[in-house]
Write a protein that binds this DNA or RNA. Sequence first.
DNA 1: GTTCGATGGCAACCATTCTCGATGTGGCCC
DNA 2: GGGCCACATCGAGAATGGTTGCCATCGAAC
Lengths: 347, 347
Amino acid sequence: MATILDVARRAGVSTATVSHVINESRVVTPETKQRVLEAIEALHYRRDGIARSLRRSRTGTIGLVVSDITNPFFSELVRGVEDAIIEKHRDSNLILCNTDEDTEKERRSVETLLEKRIDGLIFAPAGGNESQISHLITRGVPVVMVDRRLPGVEADAVLVDNVQGAYELTAHLLGLGHRRIGVMRADLRAGSIEERLHGFEAAMSAAGVPVDPALIVTSPSEVDEATRVAASLIARPSVQRPSAVFCTNNFMTLGMLRAIVQERLRCPQDIAVAGFDDLPWALGFHPQLTAIAQPAYQMGQVAVDLLFARMSEGATHPPEQRKLETRLMVRESCGATLVQPLARSTA
Amino acid sequence: MATILDVARRAGVSTATVSHVINESRVVTPETKQRVLEAIEALHYRRDGIARSLRRSRTGTIGLVVSDITNPFFSELVRGVEDAIIEKHRDSNLILCNTDEDTEKERRSVETLLEKRIDGLIFAPAGGNESQISHLITRGVPVVMVDRRLPGVEADAVLVDNVQGAYELTAHLLGLGHRRIGVMRADLRAGSIEERLHGFEAAMSAAGVPVDPALIVTSPSEVDEATRVAASLIARPSVQRPSAVFCTNNFMTLGMLRAIVQERLRCPQDIAVAGFDDLPWALGFHPQLTAIAQPAYQMGQVAVDLLFARMSEGATHPPEQRKLETRLMVRESCGATLVQPLARSTA
DNA sequence: GTTCGATGGCAACCATTCTCGATGTGGCCC
DNA sequence: GGGCCACATCGAGAATGGTTGCCATCGAAC
């Protein structure tokens, strides 16, 4: 690979001048500029980002750690981050890490990202690395948390109004006449699940409907396990069975839907399903899911805005927490649509 | 930030020794090693990956460019790549880029990845940058293509047997008695779509069924457009309507399913849908999709293997093309299951 | 005393950026 | 016309933070 020195020699100038031509950081007479550009062209020179980063102590890469890129919520979020970056900050890139909600994996990821000298970090904390993160923040690394917050860690965050969303979804269920409402609770350290539960409880109590603890089950955040747990919740005589289930995340929803098929029940006739978190790729299927949609893409964008704001202004302004609105998508899985399941109407 | 020099001073040794302790690249007496480690601890020293990369001319990051992380096929693939890397090559990371099948965006991505001095590149080419890529390969950058191949570019590749998969899926349709089979053809430069079409045609001709060109429509690879095109294909009097549709990728499938709902048809009774590419998150929905599943995750892993093989051996061995098997997932959307749509059996 | 193995230091090197400062040129004033 | 100053342009070389080849030193063994 040709270096800047090769270019300089060929153009008969110093490396400084070449550098300034490349970065447009100083006026250079048109003639020399021309010579430099020709030399660059001739040698197929491409500047070395590593040496550049070393000297400037900025790498132009930002770290993004999420729990699982395979989860539509996160892939949407990642996409939002990427698009915002290439649109507003052309010279930056994204290093991606998955943690699977594993504290140790997260710790290692952050560690290697730090070693790679990322300019900033966007991440959905799994929890358990609070000290590492706050240490990192006091060191001046710009950090913004997405989707979840770490208790006791002062940093920018972009969140979603989980309580409100869950409240709304539960109210929808109650409005349709459901009283025995079950809950599929994801077993995550992330506080968002708790908040959703609070929203659920608030809506129930506002409607004067008692919460039946027997209808609340907890499951690992993984499809197969969730399916089993879901089955245990609905494989009961119909009087004991919930008439509707509130699923606290994607995995819970999918598990429940699969369990319903397994148990040969009908949704929404035998059991209604309401999910927190939408499943974009399932729009073509029946029954279409009634769910709380999170603005994942937008969350990614906002995260980038917060991050770059902090990167430029330094640690001057206090941490900002942005809370985004959810949207209730009323579709079919709770039986709300008047036009009953479309596919059957022409039968 | 403390540098290696600070550590050296505090431990009373040279920077060389500190470096050797960190990298275990030379024997160091237990006592000095101890002193060094203590100094590292005390100063919260973390080695600078950038300086390190500069000196060693290896960055420990590999570039991954796909068209859209939001597409389950790619997120699965990305996950496979990531897992393989952290399992087998702990010190490496992934820089992710999305291209949206846009040639120019792809060119820019590759360009900045090169500037970042990636150790290797895994990518699903959109097409149009052949010269850039082959130039890059002759320069010695390890490259492996996934999902698609670039005509005229000699490089490692991990592909899927598109012809065979499409053949199998079509044969399945034919076996169920379908004769008027439509095709939703994705408008991509990627050769994979062509191959799938070939497989389709081969199966048809093998069965002695003529292909009706009127039933083959082409759509942009995007959901809303695909829905419109799909609607135009099926919104016909039933005699002119295909009895089954072969969808050449995810977007086509989803568009078709949505169009079916719009047009108030029933799947599979009125029209059968067979998709190339599975939709993992839709397992809980009805009708469950009969589709050709691609081993996306595994493709990512194989890609990593090929890449690291090339990275270590250099350009010595000839490019290797690995072709992975697809799997026909017979579910409900083609009406093949004897147990007719489960949800209705208890009605 | 010589040789050899075990340790560890010196200093070059990686490819840039960036701070000074050097050089030249033209205008202006006396 | 000579001297001085301002301005425009560019170069030399330090600095960035590590890695690594080569050499020096020190005991112990022969």
